[in-house]
Design a protein around this nucleic acid. Structure first.
Length: 643
DNA sequence: TAGTATGTAATTTTT
DNA sequence: TTACATACTA
């Protein structure tokens, strides 16, 4: 392999420096993935065993893209490389070694909706009003993201007393149930690497570490990386502090700087040659982002020539804005453009509406990326809760949900009786379900108790089935338990069919990778998938369609032509993202600006930014002023489309 | 128990 | 405006 031929000088450095830790500051479109896969190939060519290489990414999509590209480069090794998201790798390690950090090997994953439900129940139990749910959840997540356990919290302010109380019970409940939420997967993974008796063993597998999107790691993920770095032979982190857009979820863009300080002798390599966008687009993006103060500092240089000016378009209303964009696309269609290369980006999901309406009316194919997670849909959660109930008799929320969505007409009154009885006597809900005596104590009428018995019997049957049947067969069987009403609704039935084909797909995939196609594994996959990834897996790939999505969802993607719509104050930067305190305000504004930067740098050849003078917000017409970001760059052409 | 009526609150969402 | 949750009635 001739590396010189394929890599620029700085890329070459990023690939081949292997005697000291390396931090690669990779701007948008500078060939980051290219560098990562070549680095893997380089390490293998220097004698590293593929199974000792660990690549950590943030999305499954990024992981599978990397895997595919490694396959092309070194087909003999790609299957042995350990490549996945922090969460996925964490789950795999915990299934194997979890016992040493008191995690049962058969733990289930609670996704965010499950966790919310559990927390709501805890608030009930503690007699705390649901009005505080958001506030408390926020605080608990902050603690989790920082890796702070309930017993480490002191110096309580008045407002955190309740948060701590709920946090204590929340953690306790999760442990009792044998469940891990997303954050505790990372917390336990960190514990495993840092304090457990398996720490040295695990770290000895992972000799070469590569970490992608480092700017979006939270404190625990950084801790995990430091643990790995302490024994690894080589380590490379890759990221772009200007593209850190998940601060609201605990990401610390500052982690890159911290890595440089904390890991001695780390070499910093900057990738600043942009192979994606034309220079006028880059000039605009650079100019916007230069208004941020907290930066490691870098400036992208285009390798693609000047190109066209960025366009800024003003319209009268949001409706007109959508009409303008779609007309513009129609003109392009007459010149036979590739619709896959056009994206309409926006700050929030709710803004897609007028675009969807007009696109459908104009019969222009489009795909909506993101939004509601497939596995968050009611009918899907209902089916999976039946399955989860059969796999875990301690998961109260699944037992309640399963019962109420079953065909046995067990209603709210009965269920709240059982729930109250179970909390009061401190036994799992399933124990009440399973015992006629306890049901009697809970004042359940005999007729109802018999219905419940039918329900529990079918759950037990399902449990037995999971012992030997594969994921597809198991899911199919749950359809016998679910309320027929769910199957009657056409929309829902379609989704359920998709669930079945996803299960079939999973079984097939397992046979390729020689894994057990169990229902547990399928659930795990379902929980760890993001909405945009599901989109790709579940919907048939549609040829030639424009993409509609939030800027967050567009991260990592690129298009020839990009429209960013709704460039108005309070919309973007978003009103709710601006925070209350002065100091916080600046941080939040900087994150909004990074988001603008991410959006702008998605475009290869043309970037069109639009805003409306008036917009319908929650049924109310609002007057709007153009986004401050529009005045932060000069390489633009202005069009007034108001009339 | 199940269907209907009212109230309420609304970013972003890699896992 | 709309989605969702809770409250109310048949």
């Amino acid at each position: 392999m001739n590396l010189y031929k394929l890599l620029s000088p700085s890329q070459f450095k990023a690939v081949t420096i292997d005697n000291i830790p390396i931090c690669i500051l990779a701007g948008a479109g500078t060939g980051k993935t290219h560098v990562l896969i070549h680095r893997i190939a380089y390490l293998i060519s220097k004698g590293a065993k593929p199974e000792n290489i660990l690549g950590l990414t943030f999305t499954n999509k990024a992981a599978s893209e990397m895997r595919e590209r490694v396959e092309q480069l070194i087909p003999e090794a790609f299957q042995r490389i350990v490549l996945g998201t922090f969460h996925k790798i964490g789950v795999n390690l915990l299934r194997r070694y979890g016992e040493s950090v008191s995690v049962s090997s058969s733990f289930v994953i609670y996704d965010s909706k499950d966790s919310d439900k559990l927390l709501k129940e805890i608030l009930n139990q503690l007699n705390i009003s649901q009005d505080y749910f958001g506030l408390l959840k926020n605080q608990i997540e902050k603690w989790q993201n920082a890796g702070i356990m309930p017993d480490q919290i002191d110096n309580l302010e008045k407002r955190t007393v309740y948060a701590k109380r709920s946090y204590v019970l929340y953690v306790e409940k999760l442990r009792e149930i044998g469940a891990l939420d997303f954050n505790s997967i990372l917390i336990k993974m960190n514990e495993l690497l840092k304090f457990s008796d398996k720490s040295e063993l695990i770290k000895s597998f992972f000799q070469h570490i590569l970490i992608d999107e480092y700017q979006d790691t939270n404190s625990i993920q950084a801790e995990i990386v430091y643990s790995l770095a302490s024994t690894a032979k080589t380590i490379a982190i890759v990221g772009d502090d200007d593209q850190s857009i998940y601060g609201w979820r605990g990401a610390k863009s500052h982690n890159m700087e911290e890595f440089l300080k904390k890991i001695p002798n780390t070499h910093l390599v900057k990738l600043e040659e942009n192979y994606r966008s034309t220079s006028l687009i880059l000039a605009a993006a650079n100019s916007v982002i230069s208004n941020n103060n907290k930066r490691l500092g870098k400036s992208l240089i285009s390798k693609k020539g000047e190109g066209e000016n960025v366009k800024v378009v003003k319209t009268s209303t949001d409706r007109q804005e959508a009409e303008f964009v779609i007309n513009d696309i129609k003109i392009r269609m007459q010149n036979k453009c590739n619709l896959n290369e056009i994206a309409v980006l926006m700050r929030s999901n709710a803004q897609t509406r007028p675009f969807e309406e007009i696109l459908r009316f104009s019969q222009i194919p489009y795909r909506l990326i993101g939004g509601m997670r497939f596995y968050d849909r009611k009918e899907i959660k209902d089916i999976l809760s039946i399955l989860k109930a059969s796999l875990n008799f301690k998961s109260d929320i699944d037992w309640i949900r399963a019962a109420s969505s079953s065909k046995f007409s067990i209603g709210l009154v009965t269920l709240s009786k059982i729930k109250n009885f179970s909390t009061f006597n401190n036994v799992p809900v399933s124990s009440v379900f399973l015992s006629l005596d306890l049901m009697q104590n809970a004042e359940i009428a005999l007729k109802m108790a018999n219905k419940i018995k039918n329900f529990t019997n079918s759950i037990i049957n399902l449990k037995n089935l999971t012992q030997h049947a594969n994921a597809f067969e198991v899911i199919q069987h749950t359809l016998n338990i679910i309320n027929n009403k769910e199957l009657a609704n056409e929309e829902r039935f379609k989704n359920i069919e998709q669930l079945l084909s996803a299960a079939q797909q999973y079984v097939d995939d397992c046979s390729v990778y020689n894994q057990n196609p169990s229902a547990i594994g399928f659930l795990e996959n379902a929980a760890l998938l993001s909405s945009s990834e599901e989109n790709e897996l579940l919907t048939k790939v549609q040829e030639g369609a424009i993409s509609l999505m939030t800027i967050h969802a567009a991260k990592g993607l690129e298009f020839d032509i990009v429209y960013i719509v709704g460039m108005e104050e309070d919309g973007f930067p978003h009103l709710r993202a601006m925070g209350e305190q002065e100091g916080e305000k600046i941080n939040k504004l900087e994150e909004e600006r990074r988001l603008a930067y991410v959006g702008m740098t998605r475009a290869r050849y043309e970037l069109i930014l639009t805003y409306a003078k008036r917009r319908l917000v929650r049924g109310q017409i609002q007057n709007r002023i153009p986004s401050r970001f529009l005045s932060e760059f000069s390489s633009k052409k202005f069009f007034d489309k108001t009339f």
